Simulated assay, not measured.
Amino acid sequence: MGKRIVIIFDFDRTLIDDDSDRWVITNMGMTQLYNQLRPTLPWNSLMDRLLEELHIQGKTVNDVGECLKRMPLHPELISVIRLAHSLGCDLKVVSDSNMFYIKTILEHHGIYNCFSEIITNPAVVEDSGRLKIFPYHDAASTHSCDLCPPNLCKGRVIEQIQASISESGSEKLIYVGDGRNDFCPTLKLGAGDCVLPRKDFPLHDRILKNSQLVKAKVYVWGDGEELARILLELINNNSNEDKTQ
């Protein structure tokens, strides 16, 4: 029996071409406050503080949602995600964005239900209507990884995913990312897995500088169209391997 494919996507600048946090900052008039607070707060806390300010200004959760729905997602990538899901691939998102942003965007593009799991910073709408973001790793479950921000170690998440599927031992992991915090999960991949870094982004740079540490096969992509093509090839190749076994 062939290997089942588990595709794990980063979100910002990977699954979507832009950055959802910065999109909200720019399109909802938060740039000045962002620049003022950026040196004083960690990213996760900064995003929560900006959402608090939006609430104070009278902006609603629906306003934030409508802003997010204007974010483009490459149509060919949408098609490949739907195809991969229909073929039985297990699709997941591991992101340092937040659940409200990711769910809103994926639902808008009609692919939210293609993903079995979204692992990210929790977000809740308080009784006051204010959208609040919490860290994925809270103070009680902090990690010691120096490759990842305090609120989310993606490497630890990948290890948990690997542990959950280790009983069958027949899964092939494909990790798709772009940022510095995608290097830690890359190091957790085995020789039978694949990592797809975005060309000339921090993950690609780290892989080039530390290639001896990376066991997975590396496939570089530049935009959504190229990413869709590579994913389709990997899925088809895996299917062809099934037929020859």
Rank of each mutant, 00 (worst) to 15 (best):
R4M: 02
I5D: 01
I7K: 09
I8N: 05
I8D: 06
F9E: 03
F11M: 00
R13E: 15
T14W: 00
I16Y: 03
D18G: 06
D19Y: 15
S20L: 15
W23Q: 07
W23P: 12
M28Y: 08
T31I: 13
Q32E: 11
Y34V: 14
Y34T: 04
Q36W: 10
P39A: 12
T40S: 15
P42T: 15
N44A: 05
S45Y: 13
L46A: 13
M47F: 13
D48K: 07
L51A: 06
L51D: 04
E52P: 02
E53M: 15
L54T: 15
H55I: 00
I56Y: 12
T60D: 14
C67K: 01
L68H: 10
K69N: 07
R70T: 06
R70K: 11
P72S: 07
P72N: 10
H74F: 08
L77W: 09
I78T: 05
R82Y: 07
L83A: 08
L87R: 15
L87P: 05
C89A: 15
K92L: 07
V94M: 08
F100D: 00
K103G: 03
G110N: 12
G110W: 07
Y112M: 13
Y112K: 10
C114M: 01
F115E: 00
N121G: 11
N121L: 06
V124I: 12
D127N: 14
R130K: 15
F134W: 10
D138E: 14
A140K: 06
A140L: 12
H143E: 11
S144E: 13
C145H: 14
C145D: 12
L152E: 00
L152W: 00
L152H: 02
K154V: 02
K154C: 01
I158M: 11
E159I: 00
Q160M: 06
I161D: 02
I161K: 00
Q162F: 10
Q162N: 09
I165Y: 03
L173N: 05
Y175G: 00
V176E: 02
G177V: 00
G179H: 09
D182N: 08
T186D: 05
T186Y: 01
L187P: 09
G190P: 05
A191R: 02
D193Q: 13
L196V: 01
P197Y: 10
D200S: 14
F201C: 01
P202N: 12
L203G: 02
L203M: 10
H204W: 14
D205V: 07
R206A: 08
K209C: 02
K209D: 04
S211G: 02
Q212Y: 11
Q212C: 04
L213A: 08
L213E: 08
L213Q: 06
K215M: 09
K215G: 01
A216Q: 01
A216R: 07
K217I: 04
V218S: 06
Y219V: 04
W221A: 00
W221I: 03
D223Y: 06
E226D: 09
E226V: 04
E233F: 04
N238F: 04
N240H: 06
N240Q: 12
T244L: 10
Q245R: 13
